[in-house]
Simulated scan of single mutants.
Amino acid sequence: MKWGTKPASMATATLLLCLTLLLSACSSGATPANGSAAGSNTPAAQSLNAANQEAGTTAGSSNAGSLASATKSYTDSKGEVTIPVNPERIIDLTGSAIGNLLVLGVKPIAAADDSLKNPFHEGQLDNIVNIGVEPNAEAILKLDPDLILTFDYIEESQYEQLAQIAPVVRLKYGAGSPQDLLLEFGKITGKEDAAQQWIEEWNAKIAGVKPQIAEVVGDKTVSILQPYAKGIYAWGNKGGRGGEILYGDLGLKAPEIIQTTLIDGEGFGGDLSLELLPEYAGDYIFTSNWGWDDGDANIVYDSNVWKSLPAVKNNRVYFIDEKGSYYNDPISLEAQLEFIVESFLGSGK
């Protein structure tokens, strides 16, 4: 189970009991972090208390100058959160967005298991603690974070418990473009200028290759298809796998059903049977077995339906990286763009 997904009731109960006992033992009467200056167990809170005592004020005083300098207000997907101005002990529980921190030169102290599996981040993840797949209250508490990042699909009960350890920012999953998400990470970490610089450089790269790719592809359609044990997934312009680049930045055309349901619509991925594959298949296909299950992708690739597709017959099928494809952080986007450019321009098709 990934962070933010709905656990079984027993798992949730165990987590809540464990964290409640830990918090009671370590900080009886602690004030929740979100909605206040900071959790009492965080470095930010400790520094605030020290500053307030020296000034003869409390953290809740309206004239506490130290509060303004040590914390800031940030509006996440659920409302206003008080977070450190310069967080130094971040725990990333997004499972996929850690590259937004790394590209800004910010290394979290810990991250969820999925965050540490991206091959495009190799060499940048040293000394980051793996929190694991299951929520580990004791591990999070012992790491003494000053900020916790997650997506908004986290269960409310989990959020409430984490907010007693440190401020929690719940980012809106799938809202806006990857560039929009990077800007939010810039606001959170105080690296807005670095985020904007990356976006400008990215736009320049797109501007350089977009006309060349448009000349090759023309009005032909492009699909992103993922075989798995029970069928096939088709993807649009959300959720990684190169979709943000192909349909967003490069503005390439999708088959009508993908455009309607997955790009113009709110869907992320369309689950379809093998018989429906021709309806979703474009003139160009990007594909890979992402390994979501133990299914044999060759059941699809060796089928007569697959072999009859125009993209297959015309040698316009490109196998993308199966491990790094579903990430859409800046580092991953750069690697995906390189592959897309090579696929279209390197092949001369």
Rank of each mutant, 00 (worst) to 15 (best):
N127D: 15
E122R: 10
P178F: 10
A110K: 04
I320V: 15
S288T: 15
L125W: 01
D294L: 10
I299G: 00
P135Y: 14
G95I: 03
S273D: 11
E338Y: 01
A59R: 00
G65V: 05
D271N: 10
L262T: 01
E244H: 09
L16P: 06
N314E: 15
D293G: 04
D294M: 11
V341Q: 12
G240S: 02
T189I: 03
P108F: 02
P167W: 01
I258Y: 08
G324M: 05
L67R: 13
L162W: 05
Y247I: 10
Y280T: 02
Y74F: 15
Y247M: 10
I340H: 11
K142W: 04
K117Y: 04
G218A: 09
W306C: 07
Y247N: 07
S77L: 12
V300D: 05
A112F: 04
L182R: 07
P119V: 10
S28K: 13
Y153V: 03
A166I: 01
E275K: 07
K238P: 02
S288A: 13
A281E: 12
A335P: 09
G236I: 08
D92Q: 11
K349W: 05
D293K: 09
W306Q: 05
L272H: 11
A8F: 03
E266Y: 08
N63R: 12
L262P: 06
K142G: 00
K307V: 05
V85P: 00
F185W: 04
G239A: 11
K187T: 06
P330C: 07
S61L: 00
L252R: 11
V169F: 05
S77E: 06
K230L: 09
T150W: 01
S66Y: 03
I331D: 07
P7M: 04
A297H: 02
I320S: 11
K349H: 14
P178H: 07
N237T: 03
P145Q: 11
E138S: 14
L17M: 09
T260W: 06
S115R: 04
D113H: 14
Q46S: 13
A214E: 15
L276W: 10
N130A: 07
G239M: 03
A335S: 15
S36H: 15
L102P: 11
G231I: 09
V168L: 04
G79E: 04
Y233R: 13
I131T: 06
L21S: 08
I245N: 01
E256S: 13
N130M: 12
